[in-house]
Design a protein around this nucleic acid. Structure first.
Lengths: 250, 250
DNA sequence: CGCCTTTTTGATAGCCGTCAAATTTCGTGG
DNA sequence: CCACGAAATTTGACGGCTATCAAAAAGGCG
């Protein structure tokens, strides 16, 4: 049986649980732009939800790379930690986001992926993803776009880390979270952060005290309200002015 | 004629000039890991050398994306510039490096690519690259690894920008250049930089004066010698100690 | 050969990191 | 359900690193 036949054959009922066709994240996740038949094919290689409790690891650096993961529910952080103890968070990931793209190059993970809250993930074996790519050109092209988008996202963060001041970085961060929540149908102006000040600082290249001070500053200017992890954005326009500019896509 | 037939058919002699099979960069560039026949196929879609004079643009931000480029000779920088004038160099590219991966996501370039010296580039139409990917699974996998490596490279830079001090950043930068030159068969300890202090600063998130001071500091410690653009590394080990650590791959 | 760019070095100011302590929240176990 | 302890957050004071402004010297391109 060729791999193509394999992909076109139905699995048994038990394995059909995670069905991309009926998933509420169709429009955010890997299936974007595929037609119904193509989504069927994709759905067959996506395995059942993997549950990770808050603080648990989805994968660890230096472990073998086998699959990409899509966030079905919850949120995660990915972080690199250096031998000398230096650590940096490279991204916060919410529903529909794809994790593990950095592991393709060495066939082993280079960062840890840790759940910020109890989460569920869909597992996509990478070899199967490449098989589908050969069968469905649309899918291959879309996957290339997703990888490219990750590069663009990283470049935005490099711009932030390379040139912005603390307050600009935080404004940029809040606008990024806000727009991503909006895309997912949540409020863009009222939300709870899932990460600590220290994690935000690690992501933005700042110390946690500086992050806290920047929050206080924005609050004192009546642009936002901060109550521990709960954020209210009162003036989106003025918040945008806080960063000279900067892409808040993704 | 199907696209596959098209790829397997010979072009006329005039278009065969840039032949991957006989290129000295075979082991550094896209053909890595391909067999002879596969390299033949690739060679047929890679068009003749494109020459860019020092200071000239290979492509500009917001222009239409059609092709990836491989550096055949010379070197380039890629930089994003924001509406408010903020600018950041996202990478320096030498022979064998692939440019344009960030443009796939939007089908338009998001950065400028400018030659640091007179350079030659090979052009690979992206649609053709995806066609080859369908025909040669090895090639598709290799291409995915290249994109992933770009993400890993960006994460290294994020780590640098997020946490390192000026001297650590410069040490990291010099070691990166050194190792890349070594891979290409040049001296790892004696070389000429192609970029200005300002460009190095833009890449490292520092002002040009700070870069200059960091050079002077390393020289005063007898770790390197600096004579304008000419650098001699006297003590590679101590230079490595200067950055607490950090990946200097790529 | 001459002008313009690049580089170096100095002085000063401002932002952020560091250390410290108080307050609140959250998780765990009784 | 409540209570306790650990973790997270906020705020203040101070110091260090880097940006900024300025000027001189060296190099490179036409």
């Amino acid at each position: 049986m060729s791999s193509e036949d394999f992909l076109l054959t139905n699995f048994n009922a038990a394995q059909l649980r995670s069905n991309c066709a009926t998933c509420s994240l169709r429009e955010l996740c890997l299936p974007v732009g595929l037609n119904d038949q193509e989504i069927q094919i994709l759905g067959k290689v996506v395995s059942q939800q993997k549950k990770i409790r808050r603080g648990g690891y989805l994968y660890r650096a230096s472990t073998n790379f086998q699959a990409l993961y899509a966030v079905k529910r919850g949120s995660l952080k990915t972080c690199i930690l250096e031998e000398d103890g230096r650590q940096q968070i490279t991204g916060f990931h919410m529903t529909g986001d794809l994790l593990g793209l950095d592991a393709i190059s060495n066939e082993s993970h280079i960062c840890d992926a840790i759940a910020l809250e109890n989460s569920e993930l869909c597992e996509i074996p990478f070899s199967k993803l490449e098989e589908i790519s050969r069968i469905i050109p649309t899918f291959m092209h879309h996957f290339h776009k997703i990888m490219s988008r990750e590069i663009v996202r990283d470049h935005s963060l490099m711009l932030l880390l390379g040139g912005m001041k603390a307050e600009e970085r935080l404004a940029s961060f809040l606008l990024n979270i806000s727009s991503r929540l909006a895309i997912r149908g949540y409020s863009e102006s009222s939300f709870n952060l899932r990460m600590t000040r220290e994690e935000i600082g690690s992501y933005l290249g700042l110390k946690l005290e500086t992050v806290s001070r920047a929050f206080s500053k924005l609050q004192s200017e009546a642009i936002i309200s901060v109550n521990y992890k709960h954020i209210e954005i009162h003036d989106l326009e003025r918040l945008k002015l806080k960063m000279g500019n900067a892409s808040c896509t993704t």
